[in-house]
């Protein structure tokens, strides 16, 4: 049990939770959150795996930084789309999900 392993495991768990949230949730905002969570899990695993050496490999850090920025961009765009859709169609669900649940 070393911190990298702990965080890698936690990362895997978070990843899976995010993935499950993505596939189970209907509300788009929740899905966006789920994907963010999933991304965090991914990044956790990446950084944790990089931490197997000392000093840690900086390349994964750079990758994760890039990933975080990309994630925020995508999230911002998704939220903008969501609010626009909600404004136009009055629902925060994708069309195919609207008549169930």
């Amino acid at each position: 049990m070393t911190p990298p392993i702990i965080y890698a495991s936690a990362g895997a768990a978070v990843l899976c939770l995010g993935l499950f949230g993505f596939l189970a949730a209907r509300h788009v905002l929740r899905r966006i959150l789920a994907l963010n969570v999933m991304g965090s899990g991914v990044f956790m695993m990446l950084v944790a795996l990089a931490a197997r050496t000392d000093p840690p490999d900086p390349i994964p850090h750079a990758l994760v930084l890039t990933g975080i920025v990309v994630a925020v961009c995508v999230t911002a765009l998704a939220l903008a789309l969501l609010t626009r859709m909600c404004r136009d169609e009055g629902s925060a669900l994708l069309p195919e999900d609207r008549d169930i649940e």
Binding site: L15, G18, L19, F22, V28, R31, I32, L35, M38, G39, V42, M45, L46, L49, I59, P60, L63, G67, V74, L77, A78, L81, L82, R84, M85, D88, E89, L94, P95
Partner: peptide, 28 residues
């Protein structure tokens, strides 16, 4: 098109994340 774009985005994002997990595993 908005809803379509949103759907595309969500799925694309999920796909990207799966891809990046793969990348990470390979790098690891």
């Amino acid at each position: 098109a908005i809803a379509a774009a949103l759907r595309y985005l969500l799925l694309g994002l999920a796909g990207s994340l799966l891809y990046i997990v793969g990348v990470e595993l390979l790098y690891a």
